[in-house]
């Protein structure tokens, strides 16, 4: 999937880090299932436009609607996640 644009989303939340990602094509069920392969998937397909939420424990959440071209990524602890990711990757070197 080609990413067209990424923008920061501001809202009256807790100040955590939210990005919205715009793709070149619509999000299909197959893409949702692929995206959530190793994560927890909440998928509500009975809504007029199916909603999904992918939860990667302690790192981030992705949510979106099937048929839309964008998803929203909520980084719960962006700084901590980056350090954790860095630590994990450096240890494997």
């Amino acid at each position: 999937m080609k990413v067209v644009s990424v923008k920061h989303v501001e809202d009256c939340f807790d100040g955590s880090f939210i990005k919205e990602v715009l793709f070149a094509e619509e999000i299909t069920k197959e893409i949702i299932l692929k995206l959530s392969q190793d994560d927890v998937l909440k998928y509500y397909q009975d809504f007029p436009r199916p909603f999904f939420k992918i939860i990667r424990k302690t790192c981030y959440e992705i949510k979106g609607v099937q048929g839309n071209k964008s998803i929203r990524i909520h980084l719960k602890n962006p700084a901590e996640y980056c350090i954790e990711d860095f630590t994990a990757s450096i240890e494997s070197v």
Partner: peptide, 10 residues
Amino acid sequence: ADVGYILENS
């Protein structure tokens, strides 16, 4: 935030 998102997008 999810409820608001679902209401808007679904």
